[in-house]
Design a protein around this nucleic acid. Structure first.
Length: 519
RNA sequence: GCGCCUGUAGCUCAAUGGAUAGAGCAGCAGAUUUCUAAUCUGCUGGUUGCAGGUUCGAUUCCUGUCAGGCGCGCCA
């Protein structure tokens, strides 16, 4: 790719000048077109470290670069103010990179890899309690999780996804009691579930009730295009004795103490706020104990890297679990926890609480029914999961026609329409692209060619919203091109449009959003 | 009280420590005998909560402070 070419040139220049300066992240697309196509701040960054004048250093490097390149890649290499080096690529270098997009097609953007992370990855997300319908926050984790899985796979990673079903503990006992109470026409017990959905829960046994509710969750997720490679049930860990075995291991390692009849994990020595109970006074293990066993099981199943996505309401739980895994000699640095901030739902400007116990609950299913899977996925894919999200349902409905998701889909549909009308088929090779020199064409080509790099960066950062941002940018650049350049009858532009189609489709696919051929 | 996250345009959100902080929506003014106007062009809109610090350079890193969210169970 183009950026790699620049990086490689710079690396050789630095080597020749015998300058031990880190190049990583010091080559970027230029922020303004006056600054060329790519820019490097390596001279500014390295100047102090080397005790040199940044401008002089940049000048020296630029001279070496010109010498090494011999005008093959860059039409101009310039040095400006503080010491930036700007690269202006030759048109033919950009044009020559386009056929690869057509050749790679669905694989375009894939396999760029995440350096140093070749382990098998297990990605766990949603893992909602099977005590009611999924709420909007779950929808956010679900979409983000599914997108991260797609991203990691696209980057070449081996990823499996998993949903952990907490079918043991007080919450499921409360659920059963609530269902039975409502059926008997009695008020739900203290700590029970009062939602309207309780009366619709089917099943005569607790197991059947949980299966019914889990089935509803699965159906909602299916409508969102989300499936899991595996559903892990908490009760199986208990049944196999793995939970108590995990506690025993901690005991053997001297990481526990007994107090008040309970077994405690010495979490405080390991950075947690306080010590944590593993088995209660009556001998029953806590959720924490089961979760330790669960994560031991994940590593034992051969996964070298674990990624969990949790809601922010569980973030305080992270230190104890990490501490326990560390004590148990697990590779704690290979255990990532992504904390997702909550979604605050508004309806007509009024905040709606997302508690399972309020009557005013708005479920993920309702949101799906209102605005559709594509828009729901796009909306949750558009923001950094680490930021709070305010979402007004009325607003989403009102502007559903001008929702950004349609902007991307429309661009794709337009492209398909052009290609349908064209008599000439886009070809993989022997197409003369030398006519593509117009600014809008050049801008589009550069944007397309940035795709593989973006996939790798988004995967490494576990930030699917970068893909969404890229998609919006690409659609803008394409529409810009479309308004200015007539395509039909121009084989070079037709190839460019086909490359745009492939890239846009791959973007939408990575986000789990449909790419319609007509709208 | 302690901990984690957040604070950017009227609203919703972007911006690996880089150059003049960007989009969409909303508002205003325009564009269609032309491949899909679900589009495009232009304008309006900012002390990046506030105060310091580090740096050649800070929305980004550090300290303090204010505001909001979430935690601080022998619940999960």
């Amino acid at each position: 790719m183009l950026q790699e070419k620049i990086e490689s040139l710079l690396a050789r220049a630095l080597e020749r000048a015998a300058l031990p300066v880190k190049l990583e992240g010091k080559v970027t697309a230029s922020p303004r077109k006056e600054y060329g196509d790519f820019a490097s701040s390596v001279a500014v960054a390295g100047a102090r470290q080397l005790g040199q004048n940044p401008l002089e250093l940049a000048g020296r490097l630029a001279g070496l670069l010109a010498e090494l390149d011999r005008g093959q890649t860059a039409s101009k290499i310039e040095v400006v103010k503080p010491g930036f080096i700007n690269f202006f690529l030759k048109d033919e270098v950009v044009q020559d990179a386009i056929p690869e997009i057509i050749e790679r097609d669905r694989a375009w953007g894939q396999g760029s890899g995440v350096k140093g992370q070749e382990e098998k990855i297990l990605l766990e997300f949603v893992s909602a309690n099977p005590t009611g319908p999924l709420h909007v926050g779950h929808g956010r984790w679900a979409v983000i999780g599914d997108n991260i899985a797609r991203l990691l796979k696209a980057a070449g990673g081996r990823v499996a996804t998993e949903f952990y079903v907490n079918n043991v503990g007080a919450q499921v006992e409360n659920l059963e009691a609530s269902v039975r109470a409502v059926r008997a026409g009695q008020p739900v017990p203290e700590g029970g579930y009062g939602g309207a959905y309780i009366k619709d829960v089917q099943g005569g046994t607790r197991k059947e009730m949980l299966a019914f509710l889990l089935g509803q969750q699965q159906e909602t997720l299916r409508q969102l295009g989300i499936t899991f490679d595996r559903w892990s049930y908490e009760n199986e860990l208990h049944d196999r004795g793995e939970v108590l075995a995990a506690v025993q291991k901690l005991r053997d390692l001297g990481a526990t103490f007994e107090e008040g009849g309970a077994t405690w994990f010495k979490a405080q020595e390991l950075g947690d706020d306080k010590n944590r109970v593993l088995t209660r006074e009556d001998g029953r293990p806590t959720y924490f104990a089961a979760d330790i066993a669960y994560h031991l099981d994940k590593f034992a199943r051969g996964y070298g890297r674990l990624i969990d996505i949790w809601g922010t309401d569980h973030h305080g739980y992270a230190p104890r679990l990490k501490a326990a895994l560390k004590v148990l000699d697990q590779p704690a640095d290979k255990f990532e926890i992504i904390i997702g901030q909550l979604v605050t739902l508004y309806r007509g400007g009024e905040p709606v609480r997302m508690s399972k116990r309020t009557g005013e609950l708005i479920t993920l299913q309702e949101v799906l029914d209102e605005i559709g899977a594509d828009a729901t996925r796009f909306f949750f894919s558009a923001t950094d999961v680490n930021s709070h999200l305010d979402f007004d349902l009325e607003l989403a409905k009102q502007r559903s026609v001008s929702n950004p998701v349609y902007y991307l889909q429309y661009a794709h549909a337009r492209i398909c329409s052009i290609l349908r009308k064209s008599k000439v088929k886009s070809q993989k090779s022997k197409i003369d692209l030398s006519g593509l020199t117009y600014p809008a064409e050049r801008e589009l080509m550069l944007k397309l060619l940035a795709w593989p790099r973006l996939v790798a960066a988004a995967a490494a950062a576990r930030q699917p919203h970068r893909v969404t941002e890229y998609g919006k940018e690409l659609a803008i650049v394409f529409h810009h091109f479309y308004e200015q350049c007539r395509v039909l009858g121009n084989p070079g532009r037709l190839t460019l449009v086909d490359a745009s189609r492939i890239t846009l489709r791959n973007v939408l696919e990575l986000l789990g959003i449909s790419a319609p051929e007509s709208m």
